[in-house]
């Protein structure tokens, strides 16, 4: 079975089982996302992909498309809410973009540009999150984690290692690595793992390769993420 729905007034066809976000992408329409990844099942945590269907907010990465749906993804209300979610993520962590190796390649930063986020709006929480530089090839800077769990999922479901997991709850939630010492060096993590190459922000960084591509020539420097993201796939 298949059908079509309306995305901001434009007809989008879908196949049975496709989510709103997947069908939209296939038809060349971008819906912003952070925790969603084409190679993994939907996660549903960042909520950047919220859209309005029949007056209700839903996560477009997780909800299957249905015939005749009317989806609002770009009204001022939805864009404003997405901007606030980004502002929340910025104040939750410690994001000093100018000194971050991920700057220009970072999806969070790119989304902030995409959504014209001019200030953080809320009071910074300034959490204390020590970095872990113990591993010979990888640096972990937890200050920038947005809890998309892509590293958790990649390590568990693809690398078969479960190097990462989340612990604690609420605002105290944080990543832990799979070692009693709490040090990445004491796990079987390797620079070739998918988990080492999937972080959308600047947490999991390769040593000795910093700034090889200069700022200004990076992924989102010339084009907005809405364009880059769709090109990536095609």
């Amino acid at each position: 079975m298949s059908g079509q729905f309306l995305l901001d007034g434009q007809a989008v066809p879908f196949d049975d089982g496709q989510t709103i976000l997947e069908a939209a992408r296939a038809a060349g329409h971008y819906i912003p996302h952070l925790c969603w990844h084409p190679d993994f099942p939907p996660h549903g945590s960042c909520k950047l992909c919220i859209v309005k269907v029949g007056g209700r907010h839903v996560s477009s990465c997780a909800l299957q498309a249905a015939d005749g749906m009317e989806v609002d993804s770009s009204s001022a209300e939805i864009r404003g809410e997405r901007r606030t979610l980004l502002q929340m993520l910025f104040v939750e962590g410690n994001h000093f973009c100018p000194s971050c190796e991920k700057s220009g390649n970072c999806e969070l930063q790119a989304q902030a540009y995409e959504h014209e986020m001019m200030s953080a709006r809320f009071a910074y929480l300034f959490p204390l999150r020590p970095v872990d530089a113990s591993h010979p090839d990888i640096l972990l800077d937890f200050n920038r984690c947005i809890f998309c769990e892509l590293c958790v999922r990649a390590s568990r479901d693809v690398d078969g290692k479960s190097v990462f997991a989340l612990t604690n709850r609420g605002i105290h939630k944080h990543l832990v690595v799979n070692a009693e010492s709490g040090r990445l060096a004491d796990t079987d993590f390797s620079v070739d793992d998918l988990a080492a190459n999937i972080c959308p922000v600047g947490v999991i960084l390769k040593k000795r390769s910093g700034f090889k591509v200069p700022i200004g020539e990076r992924k989102y420097d010339a084009q907005p993420i809405s364009r880059v993201s769709l090109e990536d796939e095609s």
Binding site: E92, A123, R169, G170, I171, K173
Partner: peptide, 20 residues
């Protein structure tokens, strides 16, 4: 704020900001 599971962005951070 104390009971938020912390899974999703709006509740994890929003409850703490509201508390603030």
């Amino acid at each position: 704020a104390h009971e938020s599971c912390g899974f999703c962005t709006p509740c994890r951070i929003g409850t703490v900001l509201l508390k603030g």
